[in-house]
């Protein structure tokens, strides 16, 4: 569905991504593992159009999308829940969610449906819908961020470190809903450092190191790999 071919990104003379090729298949939950600075965030930002690739192509269902503006990419059905959440902190939860549906704002009924869906995933957001997003707890803010990304009714959802900074119990809930979202038919590309939990819900995984893909395979294979266990799972 979403394909990256020899994708490279450089900042000046620093190569943040080195010829990365990757395939995200329709309906799957793909996890992208790697340590801090491995290039996961760069990869997601490039897919979303926030960064321009210096080489390579990104295609979505055969159509080239690299080089489009971020708003065009959202319209093509790829939305991202970014690292650090990137919420509109002084706006209400409701307004944040509504802006998530900015690209399909003309379809009033569809917006209402998405909103109902998000509230069903995260009932707490309904209760807090008039509070400024910045006043919520970290876990709740992450819910708003994921909810906002879902409001665009994406075919592919990019999630960048949704578990960062959250308490272990909350992390578990977070992964449960991610799995649920995927089960409903949304293709997900999840970038995570928390390999242990992520591998439990993912179908396949890619492992990145200093800007390049070093390994890929099914979750079970990766989870069973000794090197990976030592490097990322710590068991």
């Amino acid at each position: 569905m979403l394909e990256l071919e020899n994708l490279s990104v450089s900042f000046g003379s620093f190569m943040a991504l080195r010829s990365v090729s990757m395939e995200v298949r329709q309906g799957e939950l793909l996890v992208l593992l790697g340590a801090n600075g491995a290039g996961k965030t760069t990869l997601l930002k490039t897919i979303s159009g926030l960064l321009r690739p210096s080489g390579g192509v990104i295609t979505l269902q055969g159509k080239k999308i690299s080089g489009l503006s971020p708003s065009q990419i959202v319209r093509h059905g790829i939305s991202q829940c970014a690292e650090g959440r990137r919420l509109f902190a002084q706006m209400s939860v409701y307004k944040n969610l509504l802006l998530g549906a900015y690209t399909c704002r003309k379809d009033k009924k569809g917006v209402e449906k998405s909103l109902a869906y998000v509230y069903s995933l995260y009932p707490i957001l309904k209760e807090k819908e008039n509070d400024p997003a910045g006043s919520l707890s970290g876990g709740q803010q992450q819910m708003v961020a994921i909810g906002r990304a879902l409001m665009a009714r994406p075919g592919v959802l990019l999630l960048d470190e949704p578990s960062m900074g959250l308490a272990p119990l909350v992390v578990q809930q977070m992964f449960d809903t991610i799995e649920a979202i995927n089960r409903e038919g949304t293709t997900i590309l999840l970038a995570e450092q928390n390999a242990y939990t992520a591998l439990k819900i993912a179908h396949r995984a890619y492992v990145m190191e200093s800007g390049a893909v070093v390994m890929s395979g099914s979750s079970q294979d990766i989870a069973g790999n000794e090197q990976i266990r030592q490097a990322y799972i710590g068991a």
Binding site: F88, Y102, M151
Partner: peptide
Amino acid sequence: TLIGSTIEAMSQDREGAFLVGIDA
């Protein structure tokens, strides 16, 4: 208005605004 709030959204978080598809 949603159009009007895009101004505020962009000033509160520029990258966030891009990610929801607001046209800069």
